[in-house]
Nucleic acid binder design. Sequence first.
DNA 1: GCTGGCACTCGGTAGCATCGACTGCCAGGT
DNA 2: ACCTGGCAGTCGATGCTACCGAGTGCCAGC
Lengths: 333, 333
Amino acid sequence: MLDERKAAILRAVVEEYIDTALPVGSAHVVKSSGVQVSSATVRHDMATLEQEGYLRQPHTSAGRVPTEKGYRFFVDHLGQPAPLRGSEAVQVRSFFDHAHGELEQMLQDTSRLLGDLTNYAGVVVAPTPTETTVLSVQVVSITATTALVVAVMSNGAVEKHTVELAEPIGEERIGAATVHLAAHLTGRGRQALGALPATGDAATDALCTLALGSLRRHGGEEPDQVFVGGTSQVAHAFDAIETVREVLGILEQQYVVVTLLRDVLDRGMHVAIGTETGMAPLAECAVIVAPYRVDGEAAGTIGVLGPARMDYPQAMAAVAVVSHRLSQRLTEG
Amino acid sequence: MLDERKAAILRAVVEEYIDTALPVGSAHVVKSSGVQVSSATVRHDMATLEQEGYLRQPHTSAGRVPTEKGYRFFVDHLGQPAPLRGSEAVQVRSFFDHAHGELEQMLQDTSRLLGDLTNYAGVVVAPTPTETTVLSVQVVSITATTALVVAVMSNGAVEKHTVELAEPIGEERIGAATVHLAAHLTGRGRQALGALPATGDAATDALCTLALGSLRRHGGEEPDQVFVGGTSQVAHAFDAIETVREVLGILEQQYVVVTLLRDVLDRGMHVAIGTETGMAPLAECAVIVAPYRVDGEAAGTIGVLGPARMDYPQAMAAVAVVSHRLSQRLTEG
DNA sequence: GCTGGCACTCGGTAGCATCGACTGCCAGGT
DNA sequence: ACCTGGCAGTCGATGCTACCGAGTGCCAGC
């Protein structure tokens, strides 16, 4: 563990580097850290910090830059959770006060809110429908051999899936299937999607099975819906154009984004820095994630993706607040 | 109008500049244009082309670069519509052969396809529900004072809207509203959303009115859904990071994107270059748009957004093919 | 009307000296 | 044992100059 002064020095380096993106020299540390020693002493400590892997020097005769380990120590031990700036608290409050309508639209807007608050990319993963119950099911015929299964879930989400039929099916059987499905699914949870008693009519049963299958799949390995906002911020956060492109590429792959957030949470982390993300192209990035809850149950995830030299205290505060307010908003109905 | 040689020279400049992003000198033109004259003559013509506004010189003693007018002439008179490269034709074919499921998901994927094909950002505006008919309507209660109106349209789209009720309403009235709405809307088009006969029950009527309103609004001034794919390509297409950011910013504002595409089409154009887009931040960009059709009716729009020095023939071919195949796919059901 | 030739322009690059922000180390003081 | 001021040394960044070369405009001549 680091003694107090070294910790203070490390904090000063991280904070300054986050601010300026420039390597930090001992003189700056003396000015900004509050430690009452000379720059020579600081130099000594910085050399030690470098040996221990918290800092590194881009080249001799340059200042120090935090390593992944340095950032990690910072967020674990030094990042006093900054309260949100007043104007931003207002922004969040007003956002959730005015949020209305469509769940998807609101989540999309939330991702943009996160982007605006932090100046990094904001991500929102839609609630997985695991623990919701079915409010209503309906089968609608679109063409002779395609039908649409629409299920409204108790969390306000609407699942819809096209099913392709082997052969044309009449309106009356579609109706029968609707009734049958409604009878057995309404008010029940996902576990009801396992099996269904037969109706006695083969074609109707076939349709019901397809419908069930599509609903089951949707909550299964099918990727969760994900919304990304504030991609334009990415262009500011990195100076290497190639990095920008890589990060945008990642954000485009919804599946990857979902996996990333889930992985981080699964490992019990709220912040993943550089290689901790488990994704090579994100070596220069950091991710902050938080789950949100609906009716007390973990439902989905939000997060921000920014550069490793991220304003952690601020971003963590933003994520925490948004997750809290979102949970509240989704729970109250 | 330009005489034949000047046109050939202009074409050479545009093509070379598109390729290299470097100002093109008279010697290069001689090499690549096929005109059988000396560089001095080309220089003469290029000076004329510059006076007439087709080319400009970044600075004395540099080569020429096309102006907006130059690109415009190129696409209007010189852009022989390049056939799609074989591998890309395959890619498009296989995409539409395998496209299935959810309309929204497919449109999202289509936008990415456009991005991949052109290496610019791909945009797809979802079909406006204007000319579709209602296949089914249903009202589902979510909480005591909120209900969800779900309508399945004949094009496979599902419209859903939350409505907030002034006071709690019972299940049986929700059911009554569903029945009432279904009776009057099923099989009818958007014009049926105007008014509804009364049921005799005030609470049910109130709910019906709210539901109608929400559906009407959705097809009205409410922005169309838009999908953007290939944003990461934007980082490659421009070298100025500030431009990248501006363009990404535009692409994030769905409303702006929809307006942009619609405007261009309304003006009867398929290609808008620089200021022709009507948007200042897109001064260095060009947009290619095409409508797609469902059952012969113009339904939505697709497009790509790239730099003004875009590979027009190739991109136009890609947009044309995708629009054609998408129309086909959506029409056949 | 086209051409080769020529003088000229000017951005980009390479070389070079300088500057300054750093560091590491050390001898001396507390 | 620890801290400090001082000092020599490193090395990227900055600025200067000289030069190169791609490109131009112009002109006299075919």
